[in-house]
């Protein structure tokens, strides 16, 4: 039987190292299968997060051969198997143990986003073409791969100033909800730090749900913020009229 060499990062906040394992290869096998094999046969205490193993829950994010991916969705036969497959924890968040990182920051930030706020007398009539924009963003499985790959968070660690692509599409989803009444532009400019994003589209590339994060969410949000705060004519108008919801 063919064998694949896996090199997994083992360690915690005090440091660690790669450890190599040999795993028998089966047809259609994914990286998470190999990790499970290692747990059951070599190291029972190997830490990994996973839930559904069907690419629906977004728990098993890792960096496979240096690329941020879901381990449950990455088939081994799509990787070069003449050399070892490396699996590392996602780099942007602090390591807890092995492949598990502390992603609690995302949950804290998420809580600060002003929630869905319909009008009191809403009739609840919405048409398919109106809900489709929001539906795209609601496909998000919160795997945080976009947060992981975003250089503002990954390389510059601006977690205090920038909420990251996942949270921006959360805001986009609310802002584009046909029946929402809140205006989150000030939040976008200040707390969300949307100005930091310089549209390199790395987030869109790694999204396992194929959400057009940059084109459909971040750029339209940037435009709204720019129109309101940086267009002199609009600025003057709003001085007199108050900020309209777009």
């Amino acid at each position: 039987m063919a064998v694949v060499k896996m090199r997994l990062y083992r360690g915690d906040s005090n440091g660690g190292a790669e450890k190599e394992y040999e795993v028998p290869l089966e047809e259609g096998m994914v990286v998470l299968d190999a990790i499970h094999f290692i747990q059951a046969n070599y190291d029972g205490d190997l830490a990994v997060r996973w839930n559904c193993k069907a690419a629906k829950c977004g728990s098993c994010s890792a960096e496979i051969n240096g690329m941020p991916k879901l381990t449950c969705k990455t088939r081994l036969d799509t990787l070069p198997l003449d050399k070892p497959v490396t699996v590392y924890p996602i780099k942007t968040f602090p390591i807890i143990k092995d492949l598990v990182t502390d992603v609690s920051w995302n949950y804290k930030v998420r809580k600060t986003i002003p929630p869905f706020t319909p009008a009191k007398d809403t009739k609840w009539v919405m048409y398919q073409e109106d809900v489709e924009r929001g539906q795209e963003f609601r496909k998000c499985i919160e795997c945080f791969l976009c947060q992981d790959v975003c250089h503002i968070l990954r390389n510059h660690d601006k977690k205090n100033e920038f909420i990251g692509p996942r949270m921006l599409i959360k805001i986009a989803e609310l802002e584009m909800h046909p029946l929402d009444t809140l205006d989150r532009k000030e939040f976008l400019r200040d707390q969300a730090g949307i100005g930091y994003c310089n549209i390199t589209k790395c987030c869109t590339e790694v999204c396992p749900e194929h959400i057009h994060i940059t084109d459909n969410a971040i750029i339209p949000l940037k435009e709204r913020v720019a129109d309101t705060y940086f267009d002199p004519l609009q600025w003057l108008l709003e001085k007199f009229k108050g900020s309209p919801k777009q």
């Binding site: 915690d12 747990q39 190291d43 029972g44 205490d45 190997l46 830490a47 990994v48 807890i96 143990k97 092995d98 598990v100």
Partner: peptide, 14 residues
């Protein structure tokens, strides 16, 4: 029988 520590230990959880 369990290997390792109590820190995020799936074998122990199982």
């Amino acid at each position: 029988r369990i290997e390792g520590s109590r820190m995020f230990n799936p074998g122990w959880h199982l």
